[in-house]
Write a protein that binds this DNA or RNA. Structure first.
Length: 800
DNA sequence: AGCACGCCGACT
DNA sequence: GTCGGCGTGCTC
């Protein structure tokens, strides 16, 4: 067993396979599948993952593994298999997939250096080395002595070496502990001169607590300094040691422990179904369709509890945006230190530490965003995906996986249940539940006998006719004022997606667009600049129209900032908290703003998507949606579904406790079925209606989609390649497929690259991936040399 | 990807 | 003659 099959860290098609390496004598029985190793690859050294250890290879001369980067594998056998599966299903490289399954900190970084081999070097080189033995290659590049270097390498004066590092670091803290027994300490105490007050205090302390304490803590407790402690260490009375610790982002929070709540009968029914499956150790996917406020989370918590009592582990996925402290606390409150939390707001080091807790089996529950589905548990008993309809479960870069698919794949391996929870399930999921692929669990009632809040639709066209040109309808204004008078709170929701503050000339209609992308520039009020959201291009707000030189150039659209100002002007006495990307950028500000609102330091919470989910404030009795239809005009076949889901979610923020809630939705299209049916909370009717439309227009869940996007700086080239791809697809796929395109992408140019796409609609094309792979291979040379980019997204969510 | 190798035109 | 430009092909 001295051969290792390794996937190397070179993400291109040519190297997307295993390379064999010899395991040197000294590493025998130390190399295992799932470990990172450093291997020679051509003239350099790179990182790779060991997939298998075998005893033979078809290759004659194997190079040996240079060294191992891990003592224990970072990927389990299951995760290695899963990685291969994901790579295959998303048409990605193995290496990219394995990287995506692990925390960023485990990625390798590379450094190229020049090492001196001779005491005397040519003068030119000696100057650069300046007495050092090893220097970075970059310094030579900057000095521009390439030839001299090459000669030196040939002569053997210097050598080019390749360093591979892992970025992970382990945080260590300094601890201090006594070296002597309590009795001996007593003797030391007696010997100390009277004025050594601090030393005495320290020794006294250790007589009482005969165990290590963090140095920082000791210093603070006894109001003393480093030097005093150091003297005691030097005298051999105390000892200093470094102890590995976790970076714990929640360490300063006092989370109250909670107990299981009594379940309603519908909760109990859902629980039982899951628990039965769990007890039988079999796989089943459940779709938990529960209205907002029906207590889905309590079902999760108790199902997890049951899972833990069976000695198994649980993964809970939550959309990134809903991973608020409120949410985290519910899990930490119930399961305490058994929980690890993984999301993007953590630093790299924090995320690595949370991952390590899982790897070391120090926790049994992971709560996290999409990538937490790859948590390295080995005894999974339950996987939960909350708000399963959320689009953030689909990764929009390679590997373009959907966490739901990965979850089900893992659950099949572990013979365990998956719960997909939502008040507004994705059409795909609900259709599967109806077909019996998933088991449907319904919770149509709210807890505490709370009623769903009344929803009033306001036709903003009527407002305009009545002479109200503001962004607030008369009804909404009145309702807000009522809440102020009653000391109740309001949540105002502005959907900014599909709505931006663009700049247009009122005279000639000229719209300011990005010179590098086919998209309107967005006006940023705080620095008076126009910015491109795709390439970060920036320019000053012009005084006159660049096209007709009229000075009537203005910005249009509604930003949260603008809404806040208008709102403040309309109701000067209101205290408003605004939550958007700008006000929550700083770490912890998200949390602070919510706490302020929860403590009733404000009357109105105004925000974007980030306030649509998971918020639960008893005093909120009014929810206002400023523009319900802003999503509807997007070129996206899911626009209606997204609108329905969003309106339902937002409405669910009101009246969750004793006080009854009210929802006011402002819209220009009150007759649209997604708006209308959201106002009556009729998911079933919406589902039926939308399914009919999907069937007619041949969209999911009736058809699967594949989106191929081609981009290149030359428009002709893009069109040609896309045309060719669509012809190839048409030729090699079955006659049942529909191929749309080539067409220009919705954003036809980004960063000076033209974008064309074609879309495949199909029901069953087992050969499709193989054909796509061949098409990619065909264009591979051009993709490498000629700036051509072909992206393939199976079951895309983002059609842009 | 990143590197060597090799072939060609433009120079000290 | 030699330097360096880029196209080609390989990496266990």
């Amino acid at each position: 067993m001295d051969v290792a099959n390794v996937v190397v860290d070179v993400p291109v098609a040519q190297t997307n396979r295993m390379f064999d390496y010899r395991i040197p004598e000294y590493l025998q029985h130390a190399v295992f599948p799932g470990m990172r190793v450093i291997v020679p690859f051509g003239p350099r050294k790179i990182m790779g993952y060991v997939l298998e250890v075998t005893d033979h290879s078809d290759i004659d001369k194997l190079k040996p593994i240079e060294s191992i980067m891990d003592v224990t594998p970072v990927l389990t056998k299951e995760l290695l298999e899963l990685g291969k599966w994901v790579a295959h299903h998303t048409i990605s490289f193995y290496i990219s997939t394995f990287q995506a399954m692990l925390p960023q900190a485990l990625k390798a970084s590379y450094e190229k250096q020049v090492q001196r081999l001779n005491d005397i070097l040519p003068e030119k080189l000696e100057m650069i080395f300046a007495g050092r033995d090893v220097i970075s290659f970059q310094e030579f590049e900057e000095a521009g002595v390439y030839q001299a270097l090459q000669r030196a390498v040939q002569v053997g004066d210097v050598e080019i070496i390749y360093q591979v590092h892992s970025k992970e670091t382990v945080k260590k803290q300094t601890y201090v502990k006594p070296m002597l027994e309590p009795l001996e300490l007593e003797a030391v105490l007696a010997d100390l001169p009277q004025q050594a007050k601090k030393k005495k205090a320290i020794i006294h302390f250790f007589q009482q607590h005969n165990k290590p304490i963090q140095k920082k803590e000791l210093l603070e407790k006894l109001h003393t300094t480093q030097s005093t402690v150091k003297q005691l260490i030097d005298q051999g009375i105390l000892k200093q040691e470094m102890v590995e610790t976790y970076r714990d982002p929640y360490q300063n929070e006092n989370i109250k422990r909670t107990q299981p709540l009594p379940l309603t009968s519908q909760q109990q029914d859902a629980m039982n179904a899951v628990v039965d499956t769990l007890d039988q150790t079999k796989h089943q996917t459940f779709l938990l369709h529960g209205v907002t406020g029906s207590g889905k989370t309590e079902v999760y918590l108790q199902a997890i509890h049951h899972c833990l009592t069976k000695g198994k582990e649980a993964i809970v996925l939550v959309p990134e945006i809903a991973l608020t402290p409120q949410m985290v606390n519910r899990f930490k409150g119930r399961f305490g230190s058994k929980v690890a939390v993984m999301h993007s707001a953590l630093s790299k080091g924090e995320r690595f530490d949370e991952w390590r807790k899982v790897q070391r089996k120090e926790v049994q529950v992971v709560v996290g965003a999409r990538s937490a589905i790859f948590a390295p548990f080995e005894q999974i008993g339950l996987i939960i995906i909350d708000e399963e309809h959320e689009t953030s479960y689909k990764q929009e870069e390679h590997p373009r996986y959907h966490a739901r698919d990965v979850a089900i794949q893992r659950a099949k391996y572990h013979y365990c249940p998956v719960i997909l929870g939502s008040a507004t399930p994705a059409l795909e999921s609900y259709a599967r539940a109806k077909k019996g692929v998933y088991q449907l669990l319904s919770m149509p009632e709210r807890m505490n006998n709370a009623k769903m809040p009344e929803v009033e639709l306001i036709d903003m066209r009527d407002e305009l006719h009545a002479g109200n040109r503001s962004m607030f309808s008369r009804q909404l204004k009145e309702a807000i004022e009522e809440r102020l008078a009653r000391k109740e709170q309001t949540v105002l929701f502005l959907n900014r997606r599909g709505y931006s503050t663009f700049v247009m000339c009122r005279d000639c209609g000229h719209v300011m667009t990005c010179p590098h992308c086919d998209i309107a520039l967005t006006y940023h009020r705080k620095n008076q600049k126009l910015k491109c959201h795709y390439c970060n291009y920036e320019e000053n707000m012009p005084d006159t129209c660049p096209s007709c030189e009229s000075d009537t150039i203005r910005y249009f659209g509604t930003g949260t900032q603008k809404v806040e100002e208008a709102l403040q002007e309309m109701i000067p006495e209101a205290n408003i908290i605004r939550m958007d990307v700008d006000t929550t950028r700083r770490k912890g500000s998200h949390e602070r703003l919510l706490r302020q609102f929860g403590n009733q330091q404000a009357d109105i919470l105004l925000g974007t998507q980030m306030i649509a989910k998971g918020l639960d404030f008893p005093n909120v009795t009014l929810v206002g949606v400023l523009a319900a239809d802003s999503l509807l005009n997007l070129p996206d076949f899911r626009a209606s579904e997204k609108t329905f889901q969003l309106l339902t979610q937002v409405s669910g923020r009101a009246g969750r406790h004793q006080l009854p809630g009210e929802v006011i939705i402002q819209t220009y299209t009150p007759e649209h079925y997604s708006v209308e049916l959201a106002s009556t909370y009729d998911y079933e009717a919406f589902f039926e209606k939308e399914m009919l439309i999907r069937k007619t227009y041949q969209y999911p869940p009736y058809y699967y989609l594949t989106l191929v996007t081609v981009s290149h700086p030359n428009q002709i080239k893009v069109m040609e390649v896309t045309k060719m791809i669509s012809l190839l697809l048409r030729k090699h796929l079955s006659d049942d497929v529909r191929i749309l395109g080539p067409t220009a992408s919705p954003v036809a140019r980004i960063k000076d690259r033209y974008r064309y796409q074609c879309m495949v609609k199909y029901k069953n094309e087992p050969n499709q991936r193989e054909i796509l792979r061949k098409i990619l291979a065909y264009f591979e040379d051009e993709m490498r040399k000629d700036e051509l980019l072909i992206q393939i997204d199976l079951q895309p969510y983002q059609l842009m």
